[in-house]
Design a protein around this nucleic acid. Structure first.
Lengths: 123, 123
DNA sequence: GTTCGATATGTTAATGATTTCATATCGCCT
DNA sequence: AGGCGATATGAAATCATTAACATATCGAAC
């Protein structure tokens, strides 16, 4: 019988990419990216946090933290009004997310590439 | 006056790279890499964990976990004897660390590259 | 001017990760 | 044979992160 193409002990490569402040503290990573994109789509932080299964408290705190570290707002917050309130992305946030996206795509390609090499070496 | 080259709110890019099992569980990352390299250098897990300021219990558990996930040993362990015992890297471990190293170097270059682009976009 | 639902934020509870502690085993050396 | 110091590993304690809870505030719409 021929050996399996992939064994239980196969290794894969994973990576995380994030923006950080000089202090080293993380500003935006995968989870904040997703959160902001979901806010963009759903129009509110409440809805976004629920959709992503994370507490509102944390989602709110994360965004606040990012904003403080960046020195500018990522969301325009509105209290009251239709539906109780809403949040939407600022243009700066949209721009940032776009750039983050492009960055990630580049890294995905780079890692794909490096992975081939890596597998060869550890074989 | 000319503006500062770098403000408090500058952002940097950081990334983590690790090997994972199919399950998604991490096998070797930055910390295990360092730990293994230190074991290689100092000849014992105890010395390495102390040098790195991590508990022996955790260091030992991390290596054991890695080995179980990989399905082979990363260290040759010796109990008793001169100095009470020692640990050294297996050839497979050395090979793996070399490959990890090369991988990291490639990624460093890729990210350096992507960063230029990124900065331009968020300016 | 009352109602509604989201934003805003402090406080406390639960969960997870890591360290500490405790204890056993092994094998060279004297 | 007994001591020494590192490996081996379970159990309890501590620390960090996240979730839950609790309340206040806001403003459009009715």
């Amino acid at each position: 019988m021929k050996p399996p193409r992939s064994s239980k002990n196969d290794v894969f490569l994973r990576y995380k990419l994030w923006l950080s402040a000089v202090s080293g503290e993380g500003i935006i990573g995968e989870s904040s990216y997703k959160l902001l994109r979901t806010v963009e789509e759903l129009g509110s932080l409440k809805a976004a946090s629920e959709f992503l299964g994370v507490s509102y408290r944390k989602a709110w705190g994360d965004i606040k933290n990012s904003e403080e570290l960046l020195g500018y707002d990522l969301t325009e917050k509105h209290r009251g009004g239709v539906g109780g309130g809403k949040s939407e992305l600022t243009n700066k946030a949209k721009n940032l997310l776009e750039a983050y996206d492009a960055l990630h795509k580049k890294m995905d390609i780079a890692i794909e590439d490096a992975y081939e090499d890596f597998k060869e070496k550890i074989k």
